[in-house]
Simulated assay, not measured.
Amino acid sequence: MRRSDPVRLFQTLPHACGYYAERTAQNLVLDPAAPQLDQLYGPALERGFRRAGGHLYYPHCPQCRACTPCRIDVEHFQPDRAQKRCLKRNADLTIVECMPGYNRERHALYERYLRTRHPGGGMDDADASDFRRFLTAPWSPTLFLELRLGTHLLAVAVTDVCVNGISAVYTFYDPAETARSLGTCAILQQIELARRRGMPWLYLGFWIDGHPKMDYKRRFKPLQVRGADGWRELA
């Protein structure tokens, strides 16, 4: 299979929206059985798709277009004052690039994070198979960025390294360490990883204008969003 070959595109059934309780959502999904998904991943990212487990998907809701793909311009990014303070607070951490996958230490942290941040959301009782299924895929160019204080694991940033950019897939961290702003710290470390690898973009998934859970993404400037006419810088 070549990247120019046709790839089947499926539409999911309606399901509960993760951002608006009164809405339903649907996704377009590239055929998960298609060979060479690793080669399709980069072009799919460029077109606004995102990985969840072994699926590359794009929101396609009949009555809503709120989810907007976004990415950070790595070359021109400069941390603001709050982000500089975050880096200073976490200067005692060690950042380690690791092979992806399940182990008990990561799973325990993942469980604590989900129980605290997403109680009752359907993910807060994740076993080992749930961990593997959601965070990794056999074809995906994934690494885990571990943030450690000494030997203690504080955060894991699940990070996909593609030929045309890096994708911030998911980050989970110790909920007792809120003062460290570990989510922000993880993105800053992914930006540095992109710079070391010579990658122009850090893809942050989707941004929703006016949604409080997505507002933090605006602070990583310059941020680009993708619309019908392609990518543009968000004012």
Rank of each mutant, 00 (worst) to 15 (best):
M214F: 07
L40N: 02
C185V: 11
T159M: 08
L37M: 14
K221A: 15
V163G: 00
E233C: 07
T94N: 03
F49A: 01
Q11N: 11
R218W: 06
Q190C: 01
A179K: 15
Q36D: 13
M123Q: 07
L204Y: 01
Q78Y: 02
G230L: 06
L223F: 06
L13T: 12
S129F: 02
L153T: 05
P35V: 13
L193I: 00
A157E: 05
P222L: 14
E22R: 12
A186H: 09
H76Y: 11
D125G: 14
D38G: 09
Q39G: 13
P212G: 08
N164D: 07
I95H: 01
A108M: 07
I95Y: 01
H211G: 04
H118T: 06
Q83D: 06
A157S: 11
W139N: 06
G230F: 07
D92C: 04
Y110M: 10
K84W: 08
R196A: 06
Q36Y: 14
D209K: 15
Y20R: 12
T94S: 11
R219V: 06
Y170R: 02
Y216C: 04
G42D: 13
P100H: 02
G101R: 03
P62H: 10
R47G: 05
A228E: 15
H15N: 08
Y41G: 01
F49D: 00
F220Y: 15
P35W: 11
F144C: 02
L147V: 03
G18D: 07
L40Y: 04
P69V: 03
S129T: 15
C86V: 14
L93M: 09
L143N: 04
T151S: 12
D209Y: 14
D209H: 15
Y19L: 14
Y41L: 00
L28D: 12
Y58D: 10
D160Y: 00
A34W: 11
R219A: 14
G198D: 07
M123H: 07
R195M: 08
R71A: 06
P222N: 13
E105Y: 07
V169P: 00
T24G: 02
R51V: 00
L145A: 02
H211N: 11
C86Q: 10
L109G: 07
Y113I: 10
V74W: 06
R50H: 01
Q83W: 08
G230M: 08
Y19K: 10
H15V: 09
Q189D: 10
A52F: 01
F49V: 01
A137D: 04
H76V: 01
N27C: 06
L114C: 04
